[in-house]
Design a protein around this nucleic acid. Structure first.
Lengths: 154, 154
DNA sequence: CCTATTAGGTTGCAATATGCAACTTACTAG
DNA sequence: CTAGTAAGTTGCATATTGCAACCTAATAGG
């Protein structure tokens, strides 16, 4: 497995691979979904997800280690530990929503619950979409991949 | 905070697990990244990703089976097979971009390449963000999770 | 204080999944 | 007819996951 380590280093330069290194393991994303929905404690994650305790222990440790969750011992009950999302973890929300919307549309067919709303207007958020710099949604035929070097014009 | 039974019910209705079922396996997403960047053939995926041939074979089969890729035998060279994204697969672009942007910002620190632009203006697309129904980006403190049933107010 | 229960783990072991190298099968090019 | 190429498959080693039982430190109740 030495080559595997070397390969991981190579892939670290691609930010997608880098992202998957930290959140691409089995269960990691479901744990994060739980965290976004207000779960904080080991036993809560364990019972709602039905994940094996050793795997949960391992994943929480890795998520903490990579700065996505923070581990806060409860001062009023020293057995308890609260896991909560850091800024880095909270910033995964667009990923989570995109994936959820895709699953909703193409796999499960059912509308997910709960739903995110604009607190002020109580209106549901827009579907995640690729948009231009002004926020206008772009169709796929309006998109093109270019080398970053060619971007300098204008 | 909501009780555990309620969480259990929420998590059951969430389509995230369904999505992860089909694209959450190791390598699947990196294969899709390749497909989005123009790879089509077995040997191309194999050599650019460095993935084991048997695993690649298995993942391609699963992605085809779940309708994310389609397998097109090349009529001019009957050894060759082109794997290309279906509508369902192409619709994963927001997920891929969100994840890539997160990795760029929080993990790799380096800017990814290539980059998506609006074909007409040559301007780079906006970062993936949570937006209200009118397309305005929302800060995290403007967001709230609500039960879908409470949404009915026009 | 003594005991039961709870929270958050760890351990040992079986079942799966992954990784690697070598091999195969069908073509195709020369 | 031969060499090479594309897309796999096979056998076997290593890693990861899942399960159940166990452990330890803290409470909670009487």
């Amino acid at each position: 497995m030495l080559d595997l380590e070397r390969h991981r280093e190579m892939l670290r330069q691609c930010s997608l691979a880098a992202a998957l290194e930290t959140v691409g393991e089995r269960w990691s994303f479901l744990i994060l979904r739980g965290a976004f929905n207000g779960l904080h404690h080991f036993e809560e994650f364990q019972s709602t997800l039905g994940i094996a305790r050793n795997i949960l222990s391992n994943r929480l440790a890795r998520l903490v280690e990579s700065g996505i969750l923070q581990r806060d011992p409860d001062p009023t009950d020293r057995r308890r530990v609260a896991y909560r999302l850091t800024e880095k973890g909270l910033d995964l929300l667009p990923v989570l929503l995109s994936l959820r919307q895709w699953g909703e549309r193409w796999v499960s067919g059912t509308l997910s619950n709960p739903v995110l709303v604009d607190r002020a207007t109580r209106r549901q958020i827009a579907p995640m979409a690729v948009r231009d710099a002004d926020g206008r949604p772009l169709r796929r035929d309006e998109l093109e991949w270019v080398d970053r070097a060619e971007l300098k014009e204008a």
